[in-house]
Computed example of a mutant assay.
Amino acid sequence: MRRLFIWAGVAVLAVIVASQTLIGCATIDASHEGIKISKIGSDRGANDIENVTGWQFYNPLTSFIEQYPTFTQTKDYDPFTVSAKGGTLFKIDPTLNYHLQRGQGANVYRKYRKELPDIENNILRTIVYNSYRDVANTFTPDSLVNNRVSFEDQVEAKLQKALVNDGFVFENITSNLTPPESLQAMIDAKNTAVQNALRLNNQVAAEKASAEIAVTKATGLARAKVIEAEAEARANELKQRTLTPLLIQQQWIAKWNGALPTTQLGNSSTMVQLPLK
């Protein structure tokens, strides 16, 4: 009886091992795209791929399940160098954000036959490097430093097109562009000189404007004085013309209080000879 139990246990264990060997199970959640690939045929199932979701049972001897995430992937690549016109080397330390386009998992597998980490480290890295290299070679060293936004916009445009062709959606990338220290020092010195020149030009322009304001004020005051003097002279001239002897005598009489002067003036006892009644 004991031997019978032993053989029964061995049989059950054999069934369990056989079932695990012959039946595989995988779960594809909503954040992944699953594809069931056949191992049969000379092309290893590249043309026999089925998109699958949820719980999937399969025979590991004849097929397997590959899963690609469809949420945002962030890949921080090791730094590399690219050359601008003339051969000046710039360091790029890129970080790429992208995701798999829904429904493209089968095409990605047919094209590369690799898991996503392998695709990132080889295929996508080459695409990123070539994009930076091609665009950098269209810029001079100075323009590359002073026009980083334009440089990165052109790189992103190339990446977006290349990734779409491979079944991926480009989101964004940070370049961390770093020029050579010697070039950066030269550019900083040039920018400082330009800023100093602009500051001096602004200062000269301000001083010139102040001088012109002062001249304008002085000219205005001088003209005002001339006008005032001319007006006063004109008034005096008019007064001289209107002050006739008769008018002066009438004004004197109008102001006389009737008292005779006590001081004799010459041979006359009065200043004005009055007519006798």
Rank of each mutant, 00 (worst) to 15 (best):
R2S: 11
A8F: 15
G9W: 14
V10N: 00
V15D: 02
I16S: 01
S19K: 12
T21V: 09
I23S: 01
G24T: 12
G24R: 06
G24V: 13
A26K: 12
I28K: 05
I28M: 08
A30G: 06
S31V: 08
H32D: 11
E33A: 04
I37T: 03
G41D: 03
S42M: 13
D43N: 07
D43K: 02
R44E: 07
E50A: 13
V52R: 06
V52W: 15
T53Y: 07
Q56N: 15
N59M: 13
N59Y: 11
T62R: 07
E66D: 01
P69A: 08
P69T: 10
T70W: 07
T70E: 02
T70H: 02
F71M: 06
Q73G: 00
Q73D: 02
D76W: 08
Y77D: 05
A84W: 05
T88V: 14
D93G: 02
N97E: 04
G103D: 00
Y109M: 02
K111A: 09
Y112C: 02
R113Y: 10
E115N: 06
E115C: 01
I119T: 03
I119S: 03
I119V: 11
I123L: 13
I127H: 05
D134R: 07
D134P: 01
N137W: 14
D142K: 04
L144M: 12
V145T: 05
N147I: 06
V149D: 06
E152A: 13
A157M: 14
K158L: 12
K158S: 09
K161F: 11
K161A: 13
L163K: 04
V164Q: 07
D166Q: 13
F168N: 05
E171Y: 03
N172W: 14
S175R: 04
L177E: 02
T178Q: 05
P179Q: 07
L183S: 04
Q184P: 00
A185W: 04
I187H: 02
D188A: 09
N191W: 08
Q195W: 11
A205H: 06
A206Y: 12
K208G: 05
A209H: 06
A209F: 11
S210G: 07
A211T: 12
T216H: 06
R223G: 01
V226C: 01
I227H: 08
E228M: 11
E228T: 11
E228G: 05
E228A: 15
E230A: 09
R234Q: 14
R234P: 00
A235N: 00
N236H: 10
E237D: 08
E237A: 13
T244D: 00
L247G: 00
Q250S: 10
I253H: 08
A254F: 14
N257R: 03
G258L: 09
G258K: 03
G258A: 07
P261A: 09
G266F: 13
T270E: 02
V272S: 04
V272T: 08
Q273S: 13
